[in-house]
């Protein structure tokens, strides 16, 4: 594997469109539920252990070679909020464009043809990791880290937080991020023998509810 490929995939500057999304933190800030570094850390921790784990499981399974179209159905079943399904597919389409250019592979081409409107983003991420010669655990790490890195960066802009505080909280969540990535890989390994129901489906009621509320706003800074 190329460790540099993992850094590239996980880099916020990788042109995959993630910067336009707040991961629900814009809605949480509007509700005054997130207002400082501590509440942002609590938000990121909850997100990491729910949708973060689920996304990491999908990414790891895709990187392990699981059928991406079956994974895409499994991702739909794990995403009951239509606004979040739309976001996942839009991000998947953008990730696909970047991944095809950087890590071309037949598997990415096949998925692009089968899902022209975009597959769920973690699945595209997992296929890109596989094309780059990375392991499922690398894909899981990238998905888990991105799951909290996005909202932390968005909150810095929305709350004018000190970026150093945001980096500090991401570092404090590092060990938990590692744990989530490992749990995702273990589940993806089980899924290869037990089937898709073995993949994580951790969910959060508030993220689903506030995503639909946010999608109905007429003025917003972030797309989600």
């Amino acid at each position: 594997m190329s460790r540099a490929a993992l850094l590239l995939l996980a880099d916020g500057r990788f042109p995959a469109g993630g910067h336009a999304h707040s991961g629900g933190v814009e809605a949480a800030i509007a509700h005054k539920a997130v207002h400082d570094t501590d509440s942002l850390e609590a938000f990121c921790r909850g997100r990491l252990h729910t949708t973060g784990l689920t996304a990491a499981g999908l990414a790891a399974a895709a990187a392990a070679g699981y059928d991406p179209l079956l994974l895409d159905d499994a991702a739909d079943a794990r995403t009951p909020a239509p606004a979040l399904r739309a976001v996942a597919r839009r991000l998947g389409r953008q990730m696909m464009r970047a991944a095809r250019a950087t890590f071309p592979s037949a598997a990415l081409e096949d998925l692009a043809v089968a899902r022209p409107q975009g597959a769920h983003q973690p699945i595209v991420l997992g296929l890109a990791a596989r094309a780059a010669g990375l392991a499922p655990v690398d894909a899981a790490h990238a998905a888990a880290y991105e799951n909290i890195g996005g909202p932390a960066t968005a909150a810095v802009r929305l709350l004018s937080l000190d970026p150093l505080d945001a980096s500090g909280l991401l570092a404090r969540l590092g060990p938990e991020t590692d744990d989530v990535a490992q749990a995702a890989v273990d589940a993806a390994t089980r899924a290869l023998t037990e089937g898709l129901d073995a993949l994580p489906s951790a969910s959060s009621p508030l993220l689903d509810i506030t995503a639909e509320q946010h999608a109905a706003w007429t003025v917003r800074l972030f797309a989600s």
Binding site: A42, G46, H49, A77, A202
Partner: peptide, 29 residues
């Protein structure tokens, strides 16, 4: 075919369950 698959975990020792991304202090879900 899978229609809905959700897993929730509330109460100690679950990390983040009562925070602003999951229940936000609510006690009925």
């Amino acid at each position: 075919r899978p229609l809905l698959d959700q897993h929730t975990a509330y109460g100690a020792p679950e990390p983040g369950w009562d925070g602003p991304a999951v229940l936000g202090g609510h006690r009925a879900v």
